[in-house]
Structure formats: structure tokens, C-alpha cells
Design a protein around this nucleic acid. Sequence first.
DNA 1: TATTTTAACTTGTAAACACAAGTTAAAATT
DNA 2: AATTTTAACTTGTGTTTACAAGTTAAAATA
Lengths: 246, 246
Amino acid sequence: MASELKKGNMKTIRKPQHSLVYESLRKHISEKIYREGDLLPSENELCATHGVTRPTIRKALDKLVNDGFIVKRKGKGSIVKGTPMGVGILSLGGTTAALGMENLTTLIIVKPEVRPWNKAFSFELTDREKEFGCIYLERLRLINNDPVFYDITMIPNINLPRLSALSFENKSLFDLLRKHYQLEVTGGEQRIQAILATEKIQDNFKVSKDQPIIQLDRKMDTNRPDFSFYSQVFCNADKYALIGTF
Amino acid sequence: MASELKKGNMKTIRKPQHSLVYESLRKHISEKIYREGDLLPSENELCATHGVTRPTIRKALDKLVNDGFIVKRKGKGSIVKGTPMGVGILSLGGTTAALGMENLTTLIIVKPEVRPWNKAFSFELTDREKEFGCIYLERLRLINNDPVFYDITMIPNINLPRLSALSFENKSLFDLLRKHYQLEVTGGEQRIQAILATEKIQDNFKVSKDQPIIQLDRKMDTNRPDFSFYSQVFCNADKYALIGTF
DNA sequence: TATTTTAACTTGTAAACACAAGTTAAAATT
DNA sequence: AATTTTAACTTGTGTTTACAAGTTAAAATA
């Protein structure tokens, strides 16, 4: 029977309390309501303001520690570290988060479009992924008008309504997926190589052919089981170092 | 008074239960007692065998999930992913863990020795770190007799008895610090660059001067507050790709 | 026999409680 | 005044209890 489909399939997923507290505190830190060096309210105070018990608060704080937003000291409290800068290129986050939005501009070289695929760079695909095809895009990212990153992104075209219509200009792909589809990157794999600039790279980066370039193939796993997406980043780390935390 | 010193300063630190359970399970996975794909005993079974309650077991399992040893599925159980291969160069772990011990040999180029220091590669030092000096060593690492990594390691010479006497041959620095000093790497920073082989690199790697090389500067933070150590790795990722998880 | 239901597992969330242990500043003591 | 003690915070660890929700295989039903 399809009765549950007829009813509208509107089962709203109730988010757990610790997750709501986490997002609240994370937002407060990102928006500089709590600043670097500040002490967060004590666990007991947070219990009161959020109307939950300590284990729930502690679970939220654990995640913040894990994500690098705070550090905790016994007897002292939770100290704000700030929005994890540089938790970007090489770890969880995107280039936007890594470098700040200030001087970063993005040029869309290939607009998001649905394509067939059989491989994602050096990563193999499952039959299910191949069947659905992918959303493909290419971007060139400039810092102070210097081209620094060239990235190709491929996302399985599974249950992501209107994704190809969304604007990718000057936006973190990670944030976009988090906000629109509740997709969180939980980890992944990456391969790094150093190569000499190919012709395409030479054109885009305006460099000579003996310029060493970092090539980064990445597979990003998410909180949606068996859903990963892929990107290949070329980086001219000549003027700007490629920084990350882990 | 120094009475507590006279008594021998023998306050043995009791490790928390969840930490013991974590180490036990971790060991069982590393030693292939639990293999990839296996289901770990259920949380309730683990409670019984370890004589603790569920929250304690769950805390240990949380850490295993976080470190990539297992994944959990609601209604199913804890599935062993295996010893996180490649959780090495670019994430938590060392080159030994990343590549397996099989074909990796290590040549000590500069034996561990105490040195003064004012900087750790691209990282600034605190006055306290400068004061104590560092333990310095250089290693060349070969895979199937091909030189692949050249790494310089600098560790603050603070409360690490007999470290410079320990054997670093074919051993993971991370494991060594974990076992001898209970030092766990909790995170860190890294900078990646692509460079052309310097003369020193050309000699060690037996490559020409137009060979692109990955340079990796890393700062490793540990569970000991305000204690970090540093390494600089040069990698000839020509034949072997540099893989990591995050 | 094929399908559906149920029951017995599994992990996930959450509360309420107790005590250990590190930190800090006020209070008591020397 | 300088030092020590204490008390009131903080986070860390651990138990107990309860129910929600996903998975699976056996049992009941068609």
C-alpha cells in the first residue's frame, strides 16, 4: 500500500535537543556573540537557559570541542576558540571558511549541470551512484584577484531538489549543503600530489609550465548514509600557503 | 612544605573506565581480533564483560567512531571499519600507521639530540618552549627501498625522560609517545606547499631538480595542555599517492 | 507458500542523581 | 601583611532509569 505516501510523506524529523543546543552555541560563536577567549556560560547555566539537563548540554559541548569551536578546562570552564579558521582545505569545511570571505571571489567556469559519470577522479563509484548521475561544476577561486584554486565538484544527483539552480557564487558548498539539505560532512578521504602545471592550469593560473601545483582529490562522507560527494582541487600555493587543521 | 615531594610524588593517575574500554577495544581491532565488517558485541554485552554501565560503554564507542575504528548503525550495532589506514600523513596518526609496516623502512639521518630552537619551521614558539630546547631528529623513509618521505621532527624537551634514548627505527612516533608518555595527539595545524626539489631533497630522493615535491609543515597538539610538537615532511608523491582521512 | 505481524533485539535520546577533582577568591589564621 | 584554609564555583566520571526508534528473524496470518 501507498497510504503513507498519500498522506503526504510529511514525517517531520524532530531534531534532538543536544543538536539544537549545539547549533545555537555554534551560531553564537560564528556571529561573535561569544568571542575568542570568552568563557561560555557554565554547564549548569546552559541547562537552565536551554531547559535541559547536564548530559544533554555536555553532548553539545563535546561536539563543539570536536569541531574546534571551544576547549574545556576542568575547574575553569569552556573557552571559546572562535570559528575554526582553516578548517578548510584539508579538513572539515570549505575554502570559504578557510580563508574568510574578505578577498575571496569565485568564478563559475562550468555552471552546475547534470552529467553521467563512471568515476570520480581517483575514487570508484557504486552502481547506484553511477545510475543517478552527478551534478557537475567547475569553479575558479581568486584571492585579491590572484587565481589560487581551481576546483571540480561532483555531487551524486540523488534527492537534492533544485541544487543545480542554487547560486554557488561566493558561497561555501559545505554551508549550502548543510542549510538546504541538512547534509553534514562527517569525514572523508583525500589524496595529495604535487604536479607541474598542465596547460589548462597554466591558462587559469597564469603561470609557467614549471610551476609546482598541489592536486587534491577528495571524497567527502556525510551524515546521510552511503551519500558522498567528490572534488578535485588544484592549488597554486605559491603566494598563499595551504593551511588546515585536523 | 615539600612533604608531598618527600612522599615520592607517586600519585598514580587512575585512568577513567571509558578510556580503558576504549583502549581494550582499539587493541582488539588493531590486532584483528575484531575484523573489518564484524559487529562488535552489543553495548549491553560490553557492559557485562567490562562491568560498567551503558553511558560508559557509549563514551568509549563514541571515541572509536571519532577515530574511525568503527561506524554505528541504529538498530544494527557497531561495525568495525578496521585500523584507520591512511589516517596518517594528513590526519591523526603517523606514516607507519598510514602505510602499514610491511614495506616501510626508516633510516635515521640525524639521531635524536637536544638542540636549542627559536622557531619550528613556519610555526612560532612560546618563551617556555624556547627555554627548554627541543629534541631534534631527521629520518628518511623508504617504501620498497624507494625514498618517499624525508621528515624533520622537533619535540619540546619538557618532561620526556629518556626520549632521546628510545629507538625510532621502524616505529610510529605517535604510538611511541602514546605508550611511553600517555601523549595523545588531539589535533593540530598543517601547511602544505608544492615545491621543486632542493639539492638536499634531490640527493636523498635521487630525483632531478624539476621534480615537484610536497612540503608539509605540521604542528601537533596533544592531550597535555600547552604541549605541542612539530614536524616538516617532504614527500615524493610521484609513485605513491599521499592518502589520508579526515 | 507468500505475506504480514509481532517480538526481541539493536542503538539513540534524555533525565536525575552522586561524587571526584581542578580553580578561584574570599575568609580565617599566622 | 603574608600565608593558609575554606567554600563555592567549575568540569569529569559514573550509575540508574526510561523510553524512542531502527533492524531482524521468528511466528502468525492470509
